[in-house]
Design a protein around this nucleic acid. Structure first.
Lengths: 212, 212
DNA sequence: TGCAAAATGTTGCAATTGCAACAAGATAGT
DNA sequence: ACTATCTTGTTGCAATTGCAACATTTTGCA
């Protein structure tokens, strides 16, 4: 997976951050980024630490939308941060680089190769993000819980070339990802087990069928 | 809305297309693009004409995923074209520019300003695509048909600063976009009308409430 | 203009789903 | 090591939804 500063020397990274309108912010554990980033269109990069994009709906239910690890990218334009329900919370002490989005687009350093490298990295990261979202849409648009699960299994299985799927999140998280009720999902997983389609051991799901 | 060749002179466009690995294809009405683009990672641009990205599921049901008008962008990496269920069909005589995706990323013309302009345009188009997909996910992840409709109305209303919403597609298309059964949607729209939340005149929906 | 195809509206019904309310198990923080 | 919090599994039940089957209207095209 491409990261934002790949193929850019440390020296040139500093130059880049000087040319672009950037600033660095520090957050203590459980602090919100939002007051510091909601005014303008920005791209943010987690320099060190760990944060989460959280949605709190009007019933007060909180959902983890995205996990932001080191080098992860977020932004007002790409992470639904204009929506009042969303926030970003540091889960430990976290250092963040904030870049003004317009300064990327209207940059005067057009001819600098490190700037070019930067936009190309950004392009590739954005491409990956579009693919991710297409994938999720592909799954969520299936009409039944069973078909959502099977589509998810199918995509994960192809992606890793294996019939053993290791869930990258909890079952609660999976239900959020699939946008379905957790207990209804639990019921359907049980059905799939009893009908001999899958086996579940902890966070590992084994597919016992060839195709569906 | 930014388009791919904005701020690039016609002369420089030609230079650009020479530098990148591109070729131009012509399709007659109802012909499929897929045989000509499925081998490699490409970005495609509709030069003239009109096409549609279509999904045909294993029951044979066809859904319009995206309408591709002049200057529209599509691609193996950004339009789910790796999935066998997807295809692109010319709906009239259509001319298409195909660009090898890797030649964009590994381009030697780093220092040319028109190349820079091109990648910046691409960045902005990708940003818009991510936003679109976030928006749809925001809507589809609501649990009930009523909430999906209300979320859709809310987003459209904010976007155009008006309580009059003009559907950009048919009601059948709306049901596809929301990933719900058309007749169930029809029933819920009727309920919303009877409860005094909305009025519908052809493709125009008037919101009679302030917030929800 | 006329005709075939697509879009719309409606309804009954069965299947699926979300929700509430639990109990039990796992995990993380002090 | 203890405790509060989070995760998981289960079940009954009511509400929502998808589907089939139709009649009607609108649209696009030859």
């Amino acid at each position: 997976m491409i990261q934002i500063f790949d193929n850019i020397s440390v020296k040139n990274r500093l130059k880049l951050l000087n040319i672009l309108e950037t600033h660095t912010l520090h957050f203590q554990k459980n602090n919100s980024f939002l007051p510091y980033i909601s005014k303008d269109n920005i791209i943010g990069i987690i320099k060190t630490g760990y944060a989460q994009i959280i949605r709190t709906d009007h019933n007060g239910n909180r959902t983890i939308i995205e996990e932001l690890e080191e080098n992860a990218l977020f932004g007002t334009e790409i992470s639904s941060l204009k929506n009042r329900e969303y926030d970003i919370i540091a889960k430990e002490e976290t250092e963040v680089i904030i870049i003004d989005y317009n300064s990327i687009i209207n940059c005067s350093a057009n001819n600098k190769s490190f700037y070019n490298e930067f936009t190309k990295n950004l392009l590739q990261i954005f491409t990956a993000k579009i693919q991710e979202k297409n994938e999720r849409l592909e799954i969520i648009t299936k009409k039944t819980i069973r078909n959502k699960l099977l589509e998810y299994f199918s995509i994960m299985s192809k992606k890793h070339g294996s019939k053993h799927i290791y869930l990258p999140f909890t079952f609660t998280g999976l239900a959020d990802y699939l946008a379905i009720d957790r207990t209804a999902m639990s019921r359907e997983l049980k059905n799939l087990k009893e009908e001999g389609f899958i086996e579940i051991k902890n966070k590992r799901i084994d597919l016992l069928y060839d195709e569906y």
